[in-house]
Amino acid sequence: MSDDRFTRGIEEFNGGRYFECHDLLEDLWHDTRGHDRLFLQGLIQVSVGFYHFINSNYKGAASQFTRGLGKLDGYRPSYRGLELDRFTMEVVRWLALAEEGLRGDVPAFDESGIPRLHPHVPHVSERTGSVSR
C-alpha cells in the first residue's frame, strides 16, 4: 500500500502509540474500498485492542482482538508487505491475557512484549532458488 498513512500507521503501532495508529488507519480505511478495506479494519481492531488492554479495559481488548484476528486470518501469511502469521499468533497470546483479565485476574504483562508489525521477508529455497511468499 503506497499511501503514506499506512506507513505512518504501522510506525505508530510499532511505537506503542495505538490511538494514533487507529487514527491514521481509520482515516485511510474511510477512503479505501475493495480487498484492502477489511485488512485495514483488522489492523485497526488489533491496535484498539492493545489500547484497551493497556488501559485495563479487558472486555474491550478481548472483543477487539477477536474481531481483528477474524479479519486478519484471511490475509495470512502476509499481506501488503507485512508478516502476519507470527503476528497473529502473538495477538492470540494477548487475547488469552485479556480473557484472564475478564475473569478478574489482573494479567501480568510487559508492554515490550507486545508484538510489532514486521516486513514479510520472502523465504528463498536453497535447493531450488524458488521464492515462497
Partner: peptide, 11 residues
C-alpha cells in the same frame, strides 16, 4: 455505543 469505543469522535 459499547465499551469498545476508543472515543475518536468519528461518529
Amino acid at each position: 455505543i459499547t465499551e469498545e469505543c476508543i472515543n475518536c469522535g468519528a461518529c
